[in-house]
Amino acid sequence: MLDAGKPDEYPIGLGREVRAGSLSVAVFRASGGRWYALENKTPHAKGGSLAEAIVSGDYLYCPVRDLKIALGSGEVQAPDTGQVRTFDIRVEDNRVRISIPKQS
């Protein structure tokens, strides 16, 4: 588990980048109060980040190529394809905690 600060440092409806060592994680605090953490990297071959996306419900529209990606599963929606890594995230004791496997 990694500590990623206080919940109120995350604006609602927007993403924020969390750096954990060499890994960049895009954390989203969706409007319904749900929290999501995805690897901050589009599966698109040409690359790009996700943290600056437009968020709609439980989906994001990626900032570079407008791919629609499910925040929960990381699955890229049709007609595009791909998969983004996701991480467990929860808020406890007024701290945001992300579960990232050691090897990453």
Binding site: L2, D3, A4, E9, P11, R16, V18, S24, R95
Partner: peptide
């Protein structure tokens, strides 16, 4: 500036 531009540096927890 913080919320839009700066990344959060994650730290270790005790768990």
């Amino acid at each position: 500036r913080r919320q839009l531009y700066e990344p959060v540096q994650a730290g270790a927890t005790n768990e």
